[in-house]
Design a protein around this nucleic acid. Structure first.
Lengths: 147, 147
DNA sequence: GATACATGTATAAGCCAGTGATATAAATCT
DNA sequence: AGATTTATATCACTGGCTTATACATGTATC
């Protein structure tokens, strides 16, 4: 039995473990994964339609309607009408929402920092060196998802 | 304002995006994140106590009781008594459970493979080179969690 | 060895976040 | 105008988590 290219299997195994680890590391702050991801998206890309959000986050439209309702109730986002299309709802992040995203980002970076500090300089360097490649991996995944 | 060590911030940003990407890539197969993680654990480490599982997966003990009940109902795990301690429950994975884990692993590897194929050789090499370091990062996160 | 405490699991009640099916309103197309 | 498509909302339901609590078994102390 030939050793068929084990690269992807290795990468898959490694990334899956990494995923689980990162999941444990991420601060919860009382919001769901989707809620965080949606807020980050709003924070980075500005106001979005509800339908854009539901497609981007891979949840059903009713789920996004409810999520936006919750975010609105908690003061992290607001609904606004789209003057160009009066059916549409433009969701925007609020000051409080941006603050939450930032706060979580900092907490996450700090937690990761603590962990990184325990690694060797060489390991840190290897991870940092791989960041641009992982960036492109992320882009490729995003492109793959829309396909 | 001095540029304070931006390394960890960069790594945090990169890993967080990677996390979101991997989340979208992972096949769901009708099981929750915790369910998958628990099955993987049982598959790798063999039978475990319910209490071990609940601690390892960072959920409450009742949540694990219910998860095991669901897994048992679906035929992916079984409860067994611990002869040494009759209070304890030893949870084991079944054939069907192992098959599911394997099936998902393959699906994940394939999805990742497709994505990796779109990257340059240099990028793949960089990611592969960083795997051992990420492995140790995972270990460090695990150690950090128990602290 | 009886009493007290600790440990392991289960049950109950409730909440949050998702689903599919369907309704309503606005835009678009003949 | 009428029909169809698009954007969002509402409803009824389920899954998976939480806290509080109960119950059974094990351990320690006197």
């Amino acid at each position: 039995m030939i050793e068929t290219p084990p690269e992807s299997a290795l990468v898959a195994f490694g990334l899956e473990r990494l995923y689980d680890a990162l999941r444990r590391l991420a601060p919860r702050m009382g919001l769901s994964l989707t809620a965080h991801s949606t807020l980050k998206r709003l924070s980075q890309l500005g106001p979005q339609r509800l339908s854009e959000l539901h497609a981007a986050e891979s949840v059903t439209q009713p789920a996004m309607t409810q999520l936006v309702t919750r975010l609105e109730k908690d003061g992290f986002a607001v609904r606004g009408g789209d003057p160009a299309d009066r059916r549409a709802v433009l969701v925007s992040i609020t000051e409080a929402g941006s603050a939450l995203v930032e706060q979580r980002r900092v907490a996450y970076a700090e937690a990761l920092d603590t962990v990184l500090a325990g690694l060797s300089e060489a390991d840190r360097a290897a991870i940092i060196a791989a960041l641009p490649a992982m960036e492109r991996l992320v882009d490729a995944v995003a492109a793959h998802a829309t396909t």
